[in-house]
Design a protein around this nucleic acid. Sequence first.
DNA 1: CCAAAAGTGTTAACAGTACACCCATGG
DNA 2: CCATGGGTGTACTGTTAACACTTTTGG
Lengths: 246, 246
Amino acid sequence: MAKRAGADTPKDDEKRYLARYRPGDFPRPAVTVDIVIFTLVDADLKVLLVRRNEHPYKGRWALPGGFVRVSDGPEQGEDLDAAAARELAEETGLPQASAYLEQLATFGKSGRDPRMRVISVAYYALVRPALVPLIRPGGDVSHAEWHSVSTADSLALAFDHQDILRTALDRIRARIDESPIAFELVPQSFSIAELRAVFESVKGAPLDPGNFRKRFFRMLDDGLVEQVVGKRITASKPAKVYRFVR
Amino acid sequence: MAKRAGADTPKDDEKRYLARYRPGDFPRPAVTVDIVIFTLVDADLKVLLVRRNEHPYKGRWALPGGFVRVSDGPEQGEDLDAAAARELAEETGLPQASAYLEQLATFGKSGRDPRMRVISVAYYALVRPALVPLIRPGGDVSHAEWHSVSTADSLALAFDHQDILRTALDRIRARIDESPIAFELVPQSFSIAELRAVFESVKGAPLDPGNFRKRFFRMLDDGLVEQVVGKRITASKPAKVYRFVR
DNA sequence: CCAAAAGTGTTAACAGTACACCCATGG
DNA sequence: CCATGGGTGTACTGTTAACACTTTTGG
């Protein structure tokens, strides 16, 4: 292992190896991102679906999604998260980073797309109700529509999108009690009742207003939320409004 | 839309479309599965790492893994879960389905493999301590070794495997309180103290024996575990043994 | 007998649930 | 003035955490 003049350093060795390297000709799957986009309209949890106007599953409702742009060159293409953010922006017309976006799971059963082997990395997104009117379906989408999650179950979605939707629902139902995702479905400032409506819609069950209030005040004590000036006009007594901290 | 004789049914339409379809020549990423294999040795949580003997990251420790076998033909290749199970079996020499295996997350940052664009679907596996002596690293693995998770943090793993390992640790630490994965790291029949050791190793903190016992008895009441005949010989008073139900 | 770990019991604090009730407001 | 929903209080229950204690074994 003595060093010869002009000999290999480990770095040289690696450089030569990588320069010689040619991506193998093993077959590769196509990789897509599919996004389960949720919002709340009239205290009802909705998911954005697009109608397919090409085979397979022509005419069926499907989750918005698209291919991940990659390359084997020195620029290897977009990150997975970036691909999801781009698809979300393209399909909704919303500006980048205006919605909460998180990876859900990856679906790669053979045969899930009859055309070719496709592996889909699924994400879920939460869009504030205030942004919903801004949504202008763009890109290659012919027709996008909000569906109530309760009716979307009986809709015979394309591919395995039923599985993906169910997984996303399970995920947000489990996560809403543990993480602050509920604040992604209310306006920047909100009343306690509005936040409760988010929980009720996601959980699909009514909550006791008094008990929820106590739970909310613990969040206040913990500094998770703080009161802001203003009142929310309701059908009865006006309510105080709060905002999520950081 | 009137039906002509011998005209297109929607099915014919779809068949013709699919027959004409040729997978696009869009570049595709390589897709691998990487597995974070955990076990418990002497009440210490271990992870199985392999030493790379090729560039890039030659000489570094890495998670076991390999390419997903796919094709665009009518047989599209193995499911993702099957690929993970196969890799697990190949790398450890254990029979199929002898360990708990679950998808973790998908890692697809551009540049994570300098050779080409690689998207890795990560899984984690839990291997019962009793099976550890049976492990005979096979396949393309030159050298595999159990590392304590505490020391593996400071090991400069290959690729982004440090991220993957940390994600796996976060996952099992969160899941051990919510799901019965703890029983996957203990012999078929076990004492309360042995189960407690699993929790302590995963959480990385000691638990009060008395309080853990009460928690365990709730599991007994719920029918989650049941007592079996026999006793566990310990350094002191022999302990009753139990098994996980279903 | 002694150390060690199995096994038992007690207490306080806290979170979740059910439910009764008051209060301010718009109609 | 009354229905509505915001806002408040209370009693009960179950869970968790801290900790003191007894019992049974091996050495």
